[in-house]
Write a protein that binds this DNA or RNA. Sequence first.
DNA 1: TTTAAAATTTAGACAAATCTAAAAATATGT
DNA 2: ACATATTTTTAGATTTGTCTAAATTTTAAA
Lengths: 217, 217
Amino acid sequence: MTLAEENYIKAIYHLGFNGTETVNTNAIAEAMNTKASSVTDMIKKLSEKNFVDYKKYQGVTLTDDGRFIAVNMIRKHRLWEVFLVEKLNFNWDEVHEVAEHLEHIKSKKLINQLDKFLGYPTHDPHGEPIPDASGQIKKMDKILLSEALENSSCICVGVQDSSVEFLQYLDKNNIALGATLKVLQIEPFDNSVTIKINEKELVVSNVIAKNLYVKVQ
Amino acid sequence: MTLAEENYIKAIYHLGFNGTETVNTNAIAEAMNTKASSVTDMIKKLSEKNFVDYKKYQGVTLTDDGRFIAVNMIRKHRLWEVFLVEKLNFNWDEVHEVAEHLEHIKSKKLINQLDKFLGYPTHDPHGEPIPDASGQIKKMDKILLSEALENSSCICVGVQDSSVEFLQYLDKNNIALGATLKVLQIEPFDNSVTIKINEKELVVSNVIAKNLYVKVQ
DNA sequence: TTTAAAATTTAGACAAATCTAAAAATATGT
DNA sequence: ACATATTTTTAGATTTGTCTAAATTTTAAA
């Protein structure tokens, strides 16, 4: 299992809605910043090794083996992110890049001891669930802020977009995971949302509201 | 800077007595489990990039740049080893392999925060000194147990051979870094050493004594 | 339903890191 | 000092992951 193979498998997992749907060549090429022809080559290799099911011109889906590898990498990625934030004082907008590298370290003992050391966290710093050692993912019944009803009370539980820019926007406006917010008003014209958070009123655009997950209380 | 390049630089550093002496092709080939011809190829590349000084048939020495890279990798390697032992309950004979991978992760913030998190340790679990952020290495005036005089009192401070086998021998005999020992007798015939450690007498062969560093008190 | 556009694959090439086998340079022993 | 052994380098090939350009297949539109 090479680094490149692992990265392709991970991309296919994410693009295929957690390994459930077929992914096409161009989508992979764009996600991995490479050319479609390179993707075809790699897909053939992954198919030979039985990590993906592939029929020419029809896109790929992960096999059980492929999905297992993907989930394991995601487990590692998210545990390392927790480590960076909780133990090494990284901000949530700085962890992704480093975790991209750490996720490739292969040592069962390392990752299971890290899990224990961190107190078996269930979610990463962006609210994404952490698969357990057997690959099981518990998912939360979160909704997007844009889907919340007027007057509902919610807790911020995650982000859809975890880009540096969006995370820094949230920091700037004091929106952190775990914070309680109330939906005061939804403007019908542009779907912007007025919320009350940290005892203050704040108007966020629909773009923002579509990228923030909340749990209704 | 590729993974292979980094590993060659590290090997040259270690083989050349911490980057001070010239190293020959065959020595590198053996250390890296590769062929002399591959080494020549890589040396040319490292020479082009100015990490080593190289004249055909005359072996290589690290440049200042090369040495800086080597020391930095060693800093990372040893800090990760401390992390694994102190925080993740690894035994000192299990850390090397994992640290070989972790040492390649490139993030200044990661390594400096790790250093801080660990309380700025000065030595790794095998007693090797950890270079500081500027690359400075403080060295200890340790000697081999085989060089200690009869009746001297010492503290175990490090190992020369850090193979799994040797470390497990030490574990089995309850010899840990930090332990106090007294040299009771040196047998002139085979240079075996009788020591008193943990209130017990123990005879160790000259082979053992040549692989254990002590500090005379 | 035929044709144009888009997506995908193939063919052929390249860089990195390695190898084997052969050639060249250096070192060694008497 | 010189023949031989050892070490090192070169030449040519291979594998992995990538690329460009051309060919093929699928999709979409008129």
